[in-house]
Write a protein that binds this DNA or RNA. Structure first.
Lengths: 212, 212
DNA sequence: GTCTATACGGCGATAGAC
DNA sequence: GTCTATCGCCGTATAGAC
């Protein structure tokens, strides 16, 4: 491979981690379009050149941010599933609400829609997480999920459990919330019937960051 | 109101309509970030200044595009509901797939996440459409939707019917499609049970525009 | 390994000429 | 109704200081 004269900051740098903090706050508060070298630098109190030293392109900034975030998510999911091996439905429901809270995930999906590298990264981690989740579900409901009202394949139920919080969050992001409560109630009724255990859920807070 | 010195092209202009065509194609093919005065102008074969004459700011471009699109959607939805007054579930299911096809709706949702004017416009039309849809559903299932397997409020069912296609489309946009078929099958089974009529659905094509 | 200064072309937006 | 000139901000490549 060709020689690369360009120098890049170490991934273990404490400065680098602080910069990613600033990126997450910027994305949540103002959207990914506001993530500029100058804005990140101002937020972190450094020069734009230093941001560029750690992240040569904007893609590198977004990629590093999404990787740190998804690594933490996977850790949290794995631990929660190990801690409650008999309640995968409620664990996944609670996890998905937490994962979708705020505008961050929506911003990343939007980014993925027109940035090739971001799209590949999100697709990979999404499929990976879905595999972990499906394994947990199939260990618990080997022959399909027996809801009192009918039958649903583990894959279909998983997609609903994890997708509904994300979709409702997406709509809330633009201020739409009609009938949201009805869907949540209906789904939690189903969950309670399929997995009649004590409540371990801890629902998301209602607030979001102000927009520009 | 104060005097506005800025001059703007007429809304009835044929040129304006051609420009909106170019905007839709640009957004679908490359994402909203590629919608620039220069890019739209090049696509339509005019000068960037002319684009700016019709749309003083980028917000005006996006607003005009979303309005033309949603006007057409509302017309199509109303006609379909009138044409099949006894099959609102299948009409809404089919409509929602068509509405969500391609990357356009995702791009607009993303835009709404950090553009105040876009967010307001999307929220308004979404609530308006949902009202029309809910009315149709309640006319047909006045006392709730009696699925063979249980009960679901009209609002909850509506949100699922219209939300699932959008969410699955969102995931397909970044290349994720695990278990999508299972959800579609399960839902169409429910629909068939709640509204046992002939098939009027016509599912979306599988292709999307290439990304950069 | 960490950090900075500078320069380039493309961008949205405005004011105003034809 | 159409088009130009100009301004300030953007990503980012480069060259180099500590």
């Amino acid at each position: 491979m060709a020689a690369s004269p360009r120098r890049v900051g170490a991934e273990t740098s404490k400065t680098r981690d602080v910069l990613i903090d600033s990126v997450e706050r910027l994305m949540s508060e103002e959207g990914y379009a506001s993530v500029t070298y100058r804005a990140v630098a101002a937020k972190a109190g450094v020069t734009p050149s230093l941001v560029q030293y750690y992240f040569p392109t904007l893609d590198d900034i977004f990629l590093a941010t999404i990787r740190r975030r998804t690594d933490r998510n996977v850790t949290r999911l794995t631990e929660a599933l190990e801690e409650h091996p008999d309640d995968p439905l409620r664990v996944l429901w609670q996890y998905s609400w937490a994962e979708a809270t705020g505008a961050l995930i929506t911003e990343f999906m939007a980014l993925g829609n027109h940035r090739k590298s971001i799209r590949a990264e999100i697709a990979e981690v999404t499929e990976k997480v879905r595999r972990v989740q499906l394994d947990a579900l199939e260990r618990r409901f080997a022959k399909g999920v027996h809801l009192p009202e009918g039958e649903l394949s583990p894959g279909a139920l998983l997609l609903l459990i994890t997708g509904i919080p994300k979709f409702l969050n997406l709509e809330e992001g633009i201020g739409v919330k009609t009938a949201h409560g009805e869907v949540v109630e209906a789904f939690e009724r189903y969950l309670g019937a399929a997995e009649p255990r004590r409540n371990i859920r801890k629902r998301k807070p209602p607030s979001r960051s102000p927009r520009r």
